[in-house]
Design a protein around this nucleic acid. Structure first.
Length: 176
DNA sequence: TGATGGATCGCCT
DNA sequence: GGCGATCCATCAG
């Protein structure tokens, strides 16, 4: 996987890839692209202490807290570019995920749930993807669906949400 | 130095 | 479908 590219290219490329984190793994079914020219992106105001990882090397994790209580995981592309992981189809470590989630349903649908299921916290801020226990591996080519983004107020209608076509493992359906 | 407002989720009706 | 929980970087004064 070549991470060193703009988010709008990297986000669709990640769909169908497998994300492995410390014994848990899932197929990436939903992503959103955030580029530095995007008013909704955390990198939009330029580098700060909080978003420093987005301006660091590609293929690293950018972790942030959402609404004061959820962790969310993004993957850094070119400087200033990041891709939010919004949903996974769990394929390994289901018991551990269910344990962390407190339920066996919707194990990793929605960015907050993905991070919770995988045990992602600020400890993983800036961590590189690559080692066996923390990596992303390419999947077979897949069909995609595209739509407006979720949960943001600025430029929400930019078609920068990507999903695995026909998947049951989406945080929400895509509009037609 | 204080106020503000999110790349959300789950429970309640 | 509507709302409360709860943190902290950023911005205004």
């Amino acid at each position: 996987m070549d991470f060193d590219r703009p988010a709008p290219e990297l986000a669709p490329a990640l769909i169908g890839a497998t994300l492995t984190v410390r014994g848990c793994a899932g197929i990436i079914t939903e992503t959103e692209a955030y580029s530095p020219d995007d008013p909704a992106a955390h990198s939009y105001p330029g580098p700060t202490k909080r978003n420093a990882a987005i301006f660091g090397p590609s293929g690293h994790a950018y972790v942030y807290r959402s609404y004061g209580l959820h962790w969310c995981l993004s993957i850094v592309g070119q400087p200033g570019h990041a891709v939010l992981i919004r949903a996974l189809q769990p394929i390994a470590g289901l018991d551990l995920m269910a344990d962390r989630r407190g339920t066996a349903k919707r194990l990793a649908l929605g960015p907050g749930n993905v991070a919770q299921a995988l045990g992602i916290t600020l400890n993983d801020y800036g961590r590189p993807f690559g080692p066996p226990e923390f990596r992303i591996t390419d999947g077979a080519p897949v069909d995609l669906v595209t739509g407006p983004r979720i949960g943001i107020t600025k430029a929400a209608d930019w078609p920068r949400r990507f999903g695995l076509k026909g998947s049951r493992y989406l945080s929400r359906p895509f509009p037609r």
